[in-house]
């Protein structure tokens, strides 16, 4: 999440939820390395990746209806900004910030 850390905290402070799903790797070492203050989870089964495609995808969800209201993809090689940056901007807009 890197530089999005502050935006993630701001989105939570604004009343949103931010969930990072780790595609692969160790949750604790990632949290400590990035000093993450958002929810950090890993899938309990294959359904998450079946539904959410792959890493680098970001989804903004209307939690009243559970409908996807925005989705975006960054890049696998880091050549484009992470989609979480734009997703957090979308989330803040929906939260009226």
């Amino acid at each position: 999440m890197g530089g999005s850390q502050q935006k993630g905290k701001a989105a939570i402070a604004a009343g949103g939820l931010v969930v990072e799903i780790l595609h692969s790797g160790d949750l604790l070492s990632w949290i400590k390395a990035e000093d993450l203050h958002v929810s950090v989870v890993k899938p309990k089964d294959d359904q998450t990746l079946d539904q959410l495609v792959s890493r680098e995808w970001t989804y903004v969800i209307d939690l009243k209806t559970m409908k996807v209201v925005w989705k975006g993809f960054g890049s696998y090689d880091g050549s484009k900004p992470s989609s979480v940056e734009e997703g957090l901007t979308q989330l803040m807009t929906l939260l009226g910030k």
Partner: peptide, 26 residues
């Protein structure tokens, strides 16, 4: 589904849930 306008399935996870960003999630 996962397209805009689709309903997200109920997905199961486990980990560190941080609802107020007050502390590091670990």
């Amino acid at each position: 589904g996962n397209a805009v306008g689709d309903t997200l399935a109920n997905l199961a996870w486990e980990g560190y849930v941080n609802l107020d960003a007050a502390a590091s999630s670990d």
